[in-house]
Nucleic acid binder design. Sequence first.
DNA 1: TCTGGGGTCCTAGGACCC
DNA 2: TCTGGGGTCCTAGGACCC
Length: 421
Amino acid sequence: MSAVISMPAFTRTIFHVDMDAFFVSVEELFDPALKGKAVVVGGQRDERGVVSAASYEARKFGVHSAMPLRTAAKQCPHAIFVNGHPERYRECSEKVYKVLGTFSPQVEMASIDEAYLDMTGTDRLHGPPLKAAHTLHQRMKADTGLNCSVGIGTSRLIAKVSSAQAKPNGVLWIVPGEEAKFLAPLDVREIPGVGKVMETHLHALGIKKVGDLARLEESELSDRFGKWGLALAGKARGEDAGGWFDTEVGADVGAKSISHEHTYNEDTADISQLEATLMRLSEMVGRRLRESSFYARTVQLKLRYKDFTTLTRAHTLAAPTQLDTEIFGQIRALFRKNWKKGVPVRLLGVHASSFTSQPDQINLLEGNRQERWKDAMAAADRMRDKFGESSVGLAAGLRGTFRERIHENPASMPGKKKPRS
DNA sequence: TCTGGGGTCCTAGGACCC
DNA sequence: TCTGGGGTCCTAGGACCC
């Protein structure tokens, strides 16, 4: 390492810290009797649902996360099934975050059990990367009682992929310049963002390993897969090409959406039960909006039938809200408009997005009379263009009259395009 | 062996505006 | 009378991740 190597002007040192079998390990802290056993977290063996996490012991029997619980029970009958405890995981996640914060000011939790650290320029404080990683590893165990794996590289991508290779309970450093060599023998599926579908596409082209991908012309990849193909070419070389990976570590952004959903243990077509669920989900979403001081402009219903066909229907409000009643009102309207009556429902969901930090629009009438007036006038003009002079009454309370007229005149409902000049 | 719940990002089409 | 295209907002769906 003391040899003369010309390094790029700015070489980042990124750590990816990934907790090992996180949910299982947290459950073991609360019940040490689980240690060393085949444990499945996510629900009971006869429930509708999937595995959230499996202990390494259970994994030996082919059990893995996202597998249906009933399948897991068949593959590993002696496994202990445990319900998940989100509060426990959040609490431990905060402890993990605190430990990481003592190593770098630039820490970014990518999910409840993994984080990126920008360790560039911390040598003086923590020593070279491997030493820092081992110290981190020990302190994590000492402070939280949990094992983690650490991947180190010059990009988020390399750090992420190498932490996966380091598992369980290991540390792996990819020396600058060795990125392509490290990636080449790995399956394309190891690249974050390449899932089942993309893998199938790539296999069809005879591309199985990252090395195969790196040998391809960029133009061919972008021709076949568009923008994504181009990013893929960069990833094959170990670069944080495009999208989220390209962002600075620790520039954490607020939530973009909040949602809750529920799958029934048995499908139901009982409207009062369905609407009660929607009410409950709306309340949960509303509460989280208020907790986070967000106002949502768009609400969305999710509906899944018995046969797994799923539809989503959204509505954007005139003014953003955080009120349960408003959310529920819109969601119920969407539900009544779209549910095929009598057809059993498997899942319902309520989703809120397009956040603002203020209720804004609410007082537009008072606060910004001019704008409001202008909008109303413009709207009235469009009405006249469509339906003639008599369609809009101006005299008494334009707002009310305008609204009513819209609903009186079926031809003015959405779907009709304005004639072009 | 039927398939959770919480998210993010991307694409594509239509409406609408200039 | 016919014809263009960019930009933004909204909606629906899907891939992907943990």
